[in-house]
Design a protein around this nucleic acid. Sequence first.
RNA 1: GCGAUCGUAGCUCAGUUGGUUAGAGCGCCGGUUUGUGGUACCGGAGGUCGGGGGUUCGAGACCCCUCGAUCGCCCCA
Length: 415
Amino acid sequence: MSKTPQAIRGTQDIFGPDAEAFAFVVETFERVRKLYRFRRVEMPVFEKTEVFSRAIGETTDVVSKEMYSFEDRGGDSLTLRPEFTAGIARAYLSNGWQQHAPLKVATHGPLFRYERPQKGRYRQFHQIDAEIIGAVEPQADVELLAMADQLLKELGIANERGGVTLHLNTLGDGDSREAWRAALVEHFRAVKHELSEDSQERLEKNPLRILDSKDRRDQRFVADAPKIDQFLSDDARAFFDAVTSGLDAAGVKWTRAESLVRGLDYYRHTAFEFIPDEGSEAAGKLGSQSTILGGGRYDGLMESLGGAPTPAVGWAAGIERLAMLVGDRIEPNADVIVVVENDDLIDHAIAAIAKIRAGGHSAELMATGSPRKRFDKAVKAGADKIVAFDMRDGTEHVRFKADDKATASLEKLLG
RNA sequence: GCGAUCGUAGCUCAGUUGGUUAGAGCGCCGGUUUGUGGUACCGGAGGUCGGGGGUUCGAGACCCCUCGAUCGCCCCA
């Protein structure tokens, strides 16, 4: 044990039904993203550290204590991407993708965050991601959310009766958000010493987060805390109303979550999370990592990277979490298994399986172990069709286990 | 980063208050049986009991450290 290397903490080797579930999530995402005409993009896995620190915010937990940062041989500080949005924004600016605005893009791949591993939480994890860049209209938010909603339905995680619900909030525009934030600080500062230790710290760094604290001591003061609605400008309110009426028109069910905030600094206006319903099977499977898809509008992000003000909205979802919810997917059986019951006929079998595969059928060769047990192994493996090569009375004997029609077509294929 | 539980063959687990050569089922390999079939029986390989140190005449069982997993907190997807 001490001699063989172990996998890095928080990384995983995915195999079998888990790998099938993972692939199912990605394939479904690819299909749905095309339905909504999102274009595929690929991003580097690492960027200059400043891409993330400037975009996400120095004080956020992600930047301040969860990034895999290192100096390369040229002395530059680089970071393994902890999320997609910052890198996509950087690509948008450095490649002049403004010419394609409004631009709908989608991607998926590994992300890295130095966190304590837990169920549904890994140090290398994978997300699917969708963004609409350069669209000020609330219709962009609606389209993006409609895609998320359809994806979850096609994965079988959500259905018409529920299972997963869209929790929706608005953080208002920059000014609304700042005014709300100031009011919250004032509200909570008055009772600072009655708050949890965590929240006393959050008061200075990230007061919005106090709102979704799970600590009872905090929740007493959350109920009568100032609401964002009191600080919303007319424009911000009109924007949110347009989003909600658009969602209703699109048939996307949602619920208002006044205390939903997001952890990253760049969010404005729409913020949302898809969360399994309380007590549902999905909620049980996920444990405390309950958000399966989250995102929002980030109209301020491009400026933080030195670009022109550019409205944008996007979401990401954890593939591992989605895979847990779709359940084990069985690996498909081979269409045909070719059994070699006499080793003298191995080349005949190889010739046959080559023809079968060239004909577009998946096929497995069963030619190891005790010859007498190979047929049983093929039956056990669960193939629809079996072709067995054996010697009978000194001559080659080919047997088919399949219905008449399949046998006929196999015989034709093998000539 | 904090707290709790756990870690025995490829997999699922058993191993009594610490006491002789560490077990079972499944899987794998081989043999016999059956012979249009997922049968039955027999045999075999495979473990320095996550790793390191300690207590003891003696440790898989107790103590310490370490690594990892799981469950909360935190954070987030």
